[in-house]
Simulated scan of single mutants.
Amino acid sequence: MTTVDTHRITDFVLGVIRDMLNMPLPPTISPATPLGADGLELESLSFVELTVHVEREYGIQVDDETVDGFAHTTLGELVAGIRARIADEAPAGGPSAASPEPESFGPESPGLLDVKRLLALSQIIPAADPDDIADDADVVLDSLTVVWFLYQLKEQHGIELEIDHAQAADITSVGALHDFLRAQVGLLAGAGEPRGEVVGS
Rank of each mutant, 00 (worst) to 15 (best):
A166Q: 10
E108K: 12
R56D: 12
L75A: 09
A166D: 14
P95V: 13
L45I: 15
P95D: 14
S201L: 11
D114S: 12
E108F: 09
V54S: 04
A166F: 07
A191P: 00
A134D: 15
D64I: 09
L35G: 09
G94I: 06
G36I: 12
M1D: 05
I159N: 04
Q184Y: 00
G59A: 09
W148F: 12
P194R: 05
Y58M: 05
F105T: 12
V4G: 00
I171Q: 04
P24E: 13
V140L: 13
D114G: 06
L181D: 02
D179A: 15
T145V: 12
D63V: 09
E162I: 00
R56T: 07
L40A: 13
V174D: 02
I29P: 00
G106T: 05
P24D: 14
E89C: 01
A90T: 15
M20I: 15
R85G: 06
G190R: 09
D138C: 02
A191T: 01
A90Y: 01
A191F: 04
T33K: 04
T74P: 00
E193S: 13
R182W: 01
L50C: 07
D63K: 00
L177W: 04
T28P: 00
P27Y: 10
G39C: 13
V174P: 01
P31H: 14
L113E: 13
L141Q: 08
K154L: 10
L113P: 00
E160A: 15
I29R: 02
I9V: 15
A32R: 11
G200V: 06
D64E: 14
V54W: 02
V174I: 03
I171T: 02
G192M: 02
P26G: 13
D68A: 14
Q152L: 10
V146C: 11
P107T: 11
G36T: 12
L118N: 03
V13P: 01
F47N: 03
L35P: 01
Q156L: 04
L25A: 11
A191N: 02
P107D: 12
G186K: 04
D64R: 06
I163V: 14
Q61I: 08
L40D: 12
L75S: 06
G36W: 13
S143A: 15
A90M: 06
A127Y: 08
D138R: 14
L78F: 11
S99Q: 09
G94P: 00
R195T: 07
G175C: 01
V115W: 06
S44Q: 13
V140P: 00
D38A: 15
G111P: 00
S201F: 10
T74W: 08
V198D: 03
G69K: 02
V174H: 03
A32C: 01
A71G: 07
E162L: 02
D38R: 13
E101V: 11
S99W: 09
A189D: 13
L150V: 08
S44L: 10
A134I: 01
S143L: 06
I159F: 04
A183T: 12
E162A: 15
I60T: 01
V4N: 06
S104Q: 09
I125T: 04
E162K: 06
I125G: 05
H72V: 07
E103Q: 14
S99M: 07
A32S: 15
L161R: 04
A169W: 00
I163K: 03
M20K: 05
A168L: 02
E155F: 01
R56A: 15
L141I: 10
D135V: 14
Q123W: 03
A128N: 11
G106Y: 07
L35I: 10
D164Q: 03
G175A: 11
S143G: 10
V198C: 03
D131R: 15
